[in-house]
């Protein structure tokens, strides 16, 4: 079945270019050129993907993203922005965009990102049903279903991405991951210029779960290679 995609972009040339590309990926693409009509469109219908420009006449892209995220169902969003400032990137992703592209972007890159989002949504649907078993490693215990973490019986407050990263680590103890692998596995995309977010998240996780983050027991550095979760996979899953 063809995917339904909505593109909200005020530059008509760029919008048409996106439509041309996505039609090759078997998508039905609808174009909207201003924020007000875009907001009406997402209120009326559910799409498989929303491609959203940040700067829009009428309702702005961030506001539309906020409204999309307030909906009970999940609609993947790919943000487009002409501002490459880090703040915009972080804001977009922390606010729940699935990915972003800065203008100018290559159409090949756009196609790759769109495919990655579709793959991830499919994978999410199948993963939700299984793999909700509690993960225990040393004094650490993770509940994937309730998204709760405890260290030595004390519950720890983690953000959504921190939890995902810790769960990914804890499920494969002893295995070494490079930063690029972590970004593509946990965040679901790989983008030059955003890799440091992995370092940031590892730091924060260590500050929250390690006794002494300078000498981490759980998330360890393998010099010259990457990062690993301590242990050799003997940890018990209950």
């Amino acid at each position: 079945m063809n995917k339904q995609v909505l593109v909200i972009e005020d530059n008509e040339d760029i919008a048409r270019l996106i439509k041309l590309q996505l039609s090759d990926l078997n998508c039905n693409v609808k174009l909207v050129f201003d924020g007000t009509r875009g907001a009406e469109e997402i209120a009326a219908k559910t799409y498989d993907l929303l491609i959203l420009d940040v700067m829009l006449p009428g309702v702005d892209g961030m506001e539309i993203l906020r409204r999309v995220r307030a909906r009970p169902d999940y609609m993947p969003v790919l943000m487009l922005t002409a501002k490459s400032s880090e703040l915009d990137r972080v804001l977009g992703l922390e606010m729940g965009a699935d990915d972003y592209l800065t203008k100018p972007f290559s159409v090949l890159e756009l196609c790759a990102r769109v495919k990655a989002i579709f793959r991830r949504v499919t994978a999410m649907g199948s993963a939700q049903a299984s793999d909700s078993a509690l993960v225990r490693r040393g004094e650490l215990s993770l509940d994937p279903e309730r998204r709760e973490v405890q260290v030595a019986g004390r519950s720890v407050d983690l953000t959504a991405k921190e939890f995902d990263l810790l769960l990914y680590f804890a499920r494969s103890p002893g295995r070494v991951h490079t930063r690029e692998q972590l970004l593509s596995q946990v965040w679901g995309y790989s983008h030059s210029g955003y890799e440091h977010t992995v370092n940031s998240h590892i730091n924060r996780l260590r500050a929250k779960i390690e006794r002494n983050p300078n000498e981490p027991e759980y998330i360890q550095t393998v010099w010259g290679v990457g990062y690993k979760f301590a242990g050799s996979g003997k940890g018990e899953a209950a």
């Binding site: 890799e195 440091h196 370092n199 940031s200 730091n203 924060r204 550095t221």
Partner: peptide
């Protein structure tokens, strides 16, 4: 600003 081990970041950039 945040506190982070500089060597880890340098290692990751070198690897990239």
């Amino acid at each position: 600003k945040e506190v982070f081990p500089l060597a880890e970041l340098a290692q990751d950039v070198a690897q990239k």
